[in-house]
């Protein structure tokens, strides 16, 4: 028995070592830094601050605004991507001409790097020569992301939808193809309409997949960076300065290592809480199913 245990530890040791090295140690270091006022360009670069950085977070209007913007972004993206993805996935269960091509084109954005997508949309939405502002101008609407905060905000959402809805479609298609036939046959025998079958059979059966997809997308959208950075850099003003962008600016530009560590920890805590509730929900829905 002892030999077995030794063998097990020997086998997992390399992986464990790497995990500790690249996962645990940086987190511990961030916890350590969060207790300090630490700016590289300060006269005294590092001094102990206790919980001051966390206290500062609560009263920092810039952070609170970026957090609010970030959560709104998460809510809108997930709130649109999931129903839209489910709708498209359902459409793709039907047989129609050109389905294969449609499916291939649909998944293309997933193969592209977020930074490329950001650059591409910068050109598409460029107020001077981009096709989108040009077409809007034709119908009498002035579209200019450099001026309109709302347009910039919704454009970032649009880009995220364009990029990630195909992922949602793929997961739902996988989920739909694995559903059992019997409940559908029973619904057919009971004379259920298409909508009733979808509402009372498909949705409950697909619930674990929906929640898992939601779980992944919440985490992804909460830390969105590349596309928005390329597209607006957080502007105009602070209109798209989501919390991830705010954090990066604080670390790389302001070099506020202590305060940004506290902010990172808070965001990690927030993500863990959200994930905990979702996972609990997923587990309970699985048990119910």
């Amino acid at each position: 028995m002892k030999e077995d245990k030794k063998q097990v530890w020997g086998l997992i040791a390399p992986a464990l070592f790497i995990m500790i090295l690249i996962g645990v140690i940086p987190v511990l270091y961030i916890i350590y830094l969060s207790a300090f006022k630490y700016n590289v360009f300060a006269k005294v670069p590092m001094r102990y601050a206790g919980f001051d950085n966390f206290r500062k977070l609560v009263f920092d209007p810039d952070f609170l605004k970026s957090l609010r913007l970030g959560l709104t972004f998460v809510a809108l993206c997930c709130g649109i991507e999931l129903p839209l993805g489910l709708f498209i996935a359902n459409l793709l269960t039907l047989n129609f001409k050109g389905k294969g091509i449609f499916r291939t084109i649909l998944t293309l954005p997933l193969a592209m790097a977020p930074i490329t997508i950001g650059s591409m949309w910068v050109l598409i939405t460029n107020p001077d020569f981009g096709p989108v502002p040009f077409l809007f101008r034709k119908i009498g609407i002035e579209y200019n992301m450099g001026i309109s905060a709302n347009q910039a905000f919704f454009t970032t959402i649009l880009v995220d939808l364009w990029h990630w809805t195909p992922f949602v479609v793929l997961t739902f298609m996988a989920g739909l193809s694995s559903l059992p036939n019997q409940p559908y046959e029973a619904a057919l025998v009971d004379g259920a309409t298409r909508w009733q079958t979808f509402r009372y059979v498909t949705i409950p059966l697909l619930k674990p997949v929906i929640l898992t997809t939601l779980f992944i997308r919440i985490m992804d959208t909460f830390r969105v960076f590349d596309e928005v950075w390329m597209l607006t850099s957080g502007g105009p003003g602070t209109a798209t300065r989501y919390v991830s962008i705010h954090l990066v600016r604080l670390v790389l530009q302001s070099m506020e290592y202590g305060y940004s560590s506290a902010m990172s920890l808070f965001l990690l805590y927030l993500t863990i809480i959200i994930c905990f509730f979702l996972l609990t929900f997923i587990s309970s829905s699985r048990e119910a199913a």
Partner: peptide
């Protein structure tokens, strides 16, 4: 100004807010 970089970030924040019409 040895604190040039963090300083620029603060300037950027308020100047861009005004340029965007937020303030």
């Amino acid at each position: 100004l040895p604190m040039h970089r963090p300083l620029n970030e603060v300037y950027l924040k308020w100047i861009s807010k005004a340029v965007a019409g937020e303030i």
